[in-house]
Structure formats: structure tokens, C-alpha cells
Nucleic acid binder design. Structure first.
Length: 679
DNA sequence: TCATGGCCTG
DNA sequence: CAGGCCATGA
């Protein structure tokens, strides 16, 4: 509703009626409204009732434009005035009727003292509601009435209220008049009419919220005669009907008694032709329309008067849950862990736009069909040929070459990286291009480091993007040609590959620094390093881990986590072994010696994908041997039916754990990743 | 009792 | 990959 509904609504209501009536008819009760007072006898009662609670009329708003606006409207149409005068005469005549007076008085009485008769549940609820509102309204009003000017406005609003009350009374009287007409024509058969009109009075006197649908329902419930069609008819048409009805009534009273039969005299069957049904319908519909209009007006005014003094309703503005709470709870006692950016990304359910989104429409390389023909495990005699036939040694993969169904999922990168470690992970020398290797690694000859970061990350990206597809065809044999790949890729792509690493670099105050620092947690790079170490050692001891992760401040938790990592690595490793061994058996392999593990076979690819996803590390040959041994162990055990024993794998584990080789010294360097991956 | 590994599950 | 649970061995 608008800020000035009290007045605006009324005029609007009347305007609508004028419009509906084609500008020729006027709302019957508007005469009383326009006069600024009431021409009816109940004026005193109405005034008293409204003055008794002046605070109810107060409003913080300015002077309602109702009167002037209204008068303008009235004066603008002389014709309407004439018509209105006619109706007012009727009303005046009605007001002398005892029954009308009584009922109108009851209406006023109700406002003053409450209902003498048991009110309908709806009305009693509404009245209680009103009474509950009063104290707050008074309180708020006194706070606002600090100046005489406001007092004046207050008075004006009260006047408006009075007018509304007058209008209400007149409408009631009009209603009553029609009920009377109806009663006079159909008195003996309609015992419900009294209650009906009473209900209408009760409901309209309170100004319940104007709900047309509800009123229609109520009307239908109260009265079976009510026709759904009727309640939807245009009020203007009913005003016409009302006048016709009145004319008819007058003529009937003056002249002879008309016949009660009529072509449409069905239903209750008593009454003048077209009077019985039409009168009922008219009464019904007019009642509803009046109720609706009155309820709307009164309710709106009351609502407007009541609303401003109560600025804060708790239910309207529930306290916002501050995201900081969640942040604190998430990060516990280490609020310095995240930068502001990081904090944003920590709001688990909040999607933060990040550079990774730039992949949205990106396309990934398609899967090479040739991979489907790759042997599960490379048979002894054919291994070399298979290997040499692969076209993509150091292959160039151009991401935009082939659109693929994968593009949809690949492009949807996770919006945030969840740090698995509760403690700060600062200072780990990840592969930042700004970092410089400090460890003197007497390594093999490497390719020149220029643009190696870019190419390496690009290769990694390529791998990562296709990581969902095990059969993705790519170079398996030689990670020593990484520099040739696609310098054209944008930096954002490269950054996306770093993904979690990038997050780490963003939050680390030591970002770009080569200085080492003992860390209190394991970083993603530590994980990567551990995976590479797995190529040498499947069962590293805790002491060995401490040696190779010297940049980590070891405690029980860190050790357990590292051990757990290797345990998980082994789990995956053995699962793959068993899977491929069973598959080989299903494929008809009869002897374990038929199986070789080469860099071209699927088993190796699966393993490499897991431990060396970026394929930027040259897997030692020894690992292939161990893998082959493991595979054959599984094969033999399964063929021998040992897998019926629930602990049949333990024997294999015993064998495999002895096959660990020494981890190269370079892994002891905290910068080993940079150095290793530069090869 | 602790450390470790395996298994299962989310 | 991590957590929980259990079994095992020192």
C-alpha cells in the first residue's frame, strides 16, 4: 500500500466505481463522505466512537490529501451530485426505520464497548487484535507528538477517521435498506436473512482485511442461495439493479399487489416477477460489495495509522547471520590463516567467482580412439610394436581441436579449494615461477629452464583437463619433451592447473620466496612429492619420511598423515593390480609371464595418472618392474584360488614390501619438486 | 600402550 | 584423501 492509503484508497475506490459505472453512476454512500461530516443522525455516535481513541487516528505522515482531492472530485461532476442526493434521500429515509437505527446503533456500540451480542469468531479475533495494538500505538504516538503542529495533523487525521466512520455507517444503512427490501418481498421463507444481515453487519463493522475471495467464500458458506456468478458481478451493474429494485418496490407499494408468479420465479418461489431472485441476488452481491469496499477502506486506514509507530518488528527483519561466525567456527583459533580472499572462499556454500571460471566454455582434447585398442597389459611379444606405434610421443595436444562432452564438466572447476590442513601451511616452496632452486642438485642434464614453467604447467593442465577419462591418449613414455607444448595457452589456464597450489601461493606471505621454513602442516606439494616417492618406496618407514620431509615440523599427527598417505597409495595400487589381474584372467591369459607392464599399458597409465597426474615426472623403470611383479603375484594368487582366503593379499604385501628401492637424494630437498619437474 | 597397517566408508 | 575401526606386534 501507498503511504497515504487512508485517503488515497477511498478516492481510488470511488473513482473505480465511477469508472465502472461508465461515469454516470455514483457510489451510493459517497454523499456522506463528501460533506466532511455526516448528514445522517448517527453522526454523534460515530464521532464519539472515534474520538474515544484518538491515538488510533494518528499517523506520522503529512496531512492526507483526502478532503481536497475528494471535494474536487465531487465538484467536478454535477450530475453525479444530483444522483447522489437522490440516494442520500433514500438513506435519510432509511435512518428513521427502527430496525436500521437499532442496527446502526449497535454498530456504533460495538466500536465503543464491544459487542453486546456474541460476535462472530472472525470479528472477535479482529477486535482483540485491535485492542492489543492500542497500547503500543499510544506509546509510539506520544513519542512523536512533540509539537503542536503535529497535534494539528493529528486532528486532521481524526477528521478523516470520522469521515470514514460516517461512510461506514451510511453503507451499513444502505445495506440494511436492501435487506429490508428483500425481507419485505420474501419474508416468510427466508429465516436466514436476519442472521445474514447481522453477519454482514458484524463483519463489515470491524473493517477486516479486504479479502474478496474470502468474502465470497464466506458468503457462499453462509448462504446456499448465493451464486458464484453473482459475487463476481460488476458493482456498477448492481447499483443499476438496486435503483430498479427501489423503483419497483415503490410502485408495488403504491399500486396493487403484483402477482408473485413469474417466469423466473423458481427457487423459493415467492415474490414479484424478477423480484425474488433478482432481489436476493442484488442483496447478496451488494452486501458483498459493500463489505469488501468498507473492509478495504477501514482496514487500510487503520493499518496506515497503526503501522508507522512500530518501526521494528522482529519477525520482519530477523537478525542476519553473520558469515564471520561461520568463518570463525571453521577456522577455529587461527583466524590469521586466511587472507580476506581466502575467507571468502571458505564460505562453503557461497560461490565466489574466480579465475577458474574462465574455463567455462573451454574445449578439451578429444579422446583418441586408438586408446581403446591398447592392451590391458602388454603381452610379451607385442610390447615393442605397440609402443612404437603410438603417434603421440611428446605429443602436442591443442585443447581447442576437438569439442568433447567432457568440456561441460571440465570447464566447471571447483570454486574453491578446501585446505585439508588446519594449521598454516606457509612458506612451502611450491613451484612458483618466482622461486629459484636453491638446492644444489647434481642432476642429470636438463633442458633449459626458460619457459619450462609455462610449458610444464600447460602439460599439467592438459592432463588435468582430461583426467576424468582414463583412456585419454597421451604421451606416456617421455616426460623429457615437455617444453614443446602450446605456449599459446593463456595464463589463466596455467593458473587453473595450479588450482590448489595457487591458493597456497595466494595465502602465503612467503609467496615467491625461496627461503625455507619449517612448516606445521603438509601442503599439496608435499602430497605430490609423496606420490612421486611412491614410485620408489611403497612402504617408507616413518624415519624415512622424516628425512624426506625435513621441511615439515613433525609430530604424531603429521607422521600419521604421511603414513596414511602411503597407505592410501598402496590401497589404490593394489586395487589396480587386482583389477587388472582379474581382467587378464577374464581375457584368457593363462600364465603370469605373459603379462608385462610397460609405459603403454593401461595399468601403467592408471597408476601414472594417480601418482603422476601431470605426467611431469619420469617414472623409474624399477617401478614398472615392481608393478609387473605385483600384477603377476595377484594373477597367480587368483588363479590359484587363494583369493577365497580373506587375508590372501597379505602374502603379496609381504613380497612387495621387500621390493622398495632407495629414494633419490633429491627428494630430500624441499625444492625437489622444482628440480625434478624441470627435467 | 603405542605404532602401524588394512579395511571400510564418506 | 581422511577418518574410523580393528588387528597385530613390539
Amino acid at each position: 500500500m501507498m503511504p497515504f492509503p487512508g485517503a488515497t484508497i477511498i478516492s481510488q475506490l470511488l473513482k473505480n466505481n465511477v469508472t465502472k459505472n461508465g461515469g454516470n453512476e455514483q457510489f451510493p454512500g459517497s454523499g456522506g463522505l463528501s460533506s466532511g461530516g455526516s448528514e445522517v443522525h448517527q453522526e454523534d455516535a460515530c464521532s464519539n466512537s472515534s474520538r474515544e481513541s484518538p491515538q488510533e487516528c494518528m499517523s506520522p505522515f503529512g496531512r492526507p490529501p483526502a478532503l481536497s482531492q475528494f471535494d474536487m472530485e465531487r465538484l467536478s461532476d454535477e450530475h453525479l451530485r444530483a444522483k447522489r442526493a437522490r440516494v442520500e434521500n433514500i438513506i435519510r429515509g432509511m435512518s428513521h426505520s427502527p430496525s436500521v437505527t437499532l442496527r446502526a446503533g449497535e454498530g456504533a456500540e460495538r466500536e465503543r464497548e464491544g459487542a453486546h451480542q456474541p460476535p462472530s469468531p472472525r470479528e472477535s479475533y479482529r477486535e482483540n487484535k485491535r485492542k492489543q495494538k492500542l497500547p503500543q500505538q499510544q506509546q509510539q504516538s506520544f513519542q512523536q507528538l512533540v509539537s503542536a503542529r503535529k497535534e494539528q495533523k493529528h486532528e486532521e487525521r481524526r477528521q478523516l477517521k470520522l469521515q470514514l466512520e460516517d461512510m461506514q455507517k451510511q453503507l451499513r444503512q444502505l445495506q440494511e435498506k436492501f435487506y429490508q427490501i428483500y425481507d419485505s418481498t420474501d419474508s416468510e421463507n427466508d429465516e436466514n436473512d436476519g442472521n445474514q444481515s447481522e453477519d454482514s453487519l458484524l463483519s463489515d463493522g470491524g473493517g477486516v482485511r479486504a479479502d474478496r475471495d474470502r468474502q465470497t467464500l464466506d458468503s457462499n458458506a453462509d448462504n446456499d442461495r448465493s451464486d458464484n456468478e453473482i459475487s463476481d458481478l460488476d458493482p456498477g451493474r448492481f447499483l443499476d439493479r438496486a435503483r430498479a429494485l427501489l423503483r419497483e418496490q415503490t410502485m408495488m407499494e403504491e399500486g396493487d399487489k403484483p402477482k408473485r408468479d413469474g417466469p423466473r420465479g423458481g427457487g423459493k418461489g415467492q415474490g414479484p416477477p424478477s423480484m425474488n431472485t433478482e432481489g436476493k441476488q442484488l442483496a447478496e452481491t451488494l452486501k458483498q460489495e459493500l463489505n469488501s469496499a468498507m473492509s478495504q477502506v477501514v482496514d487500510t486506514v487503520v493499518k496506515v495509522f497503526a503501522k508507522p509507530p512500530r518501526p521494528s518488528v522482529p519477525q520482519v527483519f530477523p537478525p542476519l547471520q553473520m558469515p564471520q561466525d561461520r568463518f570463525i567456527s571453521v577456522n577455529g583459533d587461527n583466524p590469521n590463516f586466511h587472507t580476506a580472499n581466502q575467507r571468502l572462499q571458505c564460505f562453503g556454500d557461497v560461490i565466489i567467482p574466480n579465475p577458474l571460471d574462465s574455463f567455462g566454455g573451454m574445449q578439451v582434447p578429444s579422446i583418441n580412439d586408438q586408446t581403446e585398442a591398447l592392451p590391458l597389459v602388454v603381452r610379451k611379444n607385442s610390447a615393442d610394436h605397440q609402443s612404437s606405434s603410438l603417434p603421440s610421443h611428446g605429443g602436442h595436444h591443442h585443447p581447442s581441436l576437438h569439442p568433447s562432452p567432457l568440456s561441460a564438466t571440465v570447464g566447471f572447476s571447483p570454486p574453491s579449494f578446501r585446505h585439508p590442513f588446519p594449521l598454516p601451511l606457509m612458506g612451502y616452496p611450491f613451484q612458483s615461477p618466482l622461486g629459484t632452486p636453491s638446492g644444489g642438485y647434481p642432476g642429470k642434464d636438463r633442458s633449459s629452464p626458460e619457459s619450462l614453467d609455462l610449458s610444464r604447467e600447460t602439460t599439467s593442465l592438459r592432463t588435468k583437463m582430461s583426467s576424468n577419462h582414463l583412456n585419454h591418449h597421451r604421451s606416456c613414455s617421455s616426460p623429457s619433451h615437455p617444453g614443446s607444448a602450446s605456449e599459446g595457452l593463456s595464463l589463466s589456464l596455467i593458473k587453473s592447473e595450479c588450482g590448489d597450489l595457487q591458493d597456497m601461493s595466494e595465502i602465503s606471505p612467503y609467496s615467491g620466496s625461496t627461503s625455507f621454513q619449517i612448516q606445521e602442516g603438509l601442503s599439496p606439494n608435499h602430497l605430490k612429492k609423496a606420490k612421486l616417492m611412491f614410485f620408489y618406496a611403497r612402504y617408507p618407514s616413518s624415519n624415512m619420511l622424516k628425512m624426506f620431509f625435513s621441511d615439515v615440523k613433525f609430530n604424531r599427527c603429521i607422521t600419521s598423515q604421511l603414513i596414511k598417505w602411503f597407505s592410501n597409495f598402496r590401497e589404490f595400487y593394489y586395487i589396480q593390480m587386482e583389477k587388472f589381474a582379474r581382467q587378464a584372467i577374464n581375457d584368457g591369459v593363462t600364465g603370469s609371464e605373459e603379462m608385462n607392464v610397460s609405459r603403454d599399458c593401461e595399468l601403467y597409465r592408471a597408476l601414472n595418472m594417480h601418482y603422476n597426474k601431470a605426467n611431469d615426472f619420469e617414472v623409474p623403470d624399477r617401478f614398472l618392474e615392481v608393478a609387473q611383479i605385483t600384477l603377476r603375484e595377484f594373477f597367480n594368487a587368483i588363479v590359484a584360488g587363494k583369493d577365497v582366503d580373506p587375508s590372501w593379499k597379505k602374502a603379496i604385501y609381504k613380497v612387495i614390501c621387500k621390493l622398495d628401492s632407495e629414494v633419490p637424494e633429491i627428494f630430500k630437498s624441499p625444492n625437489c619438486l622444482q628440480e625434478l619437474l624441470h627435467e
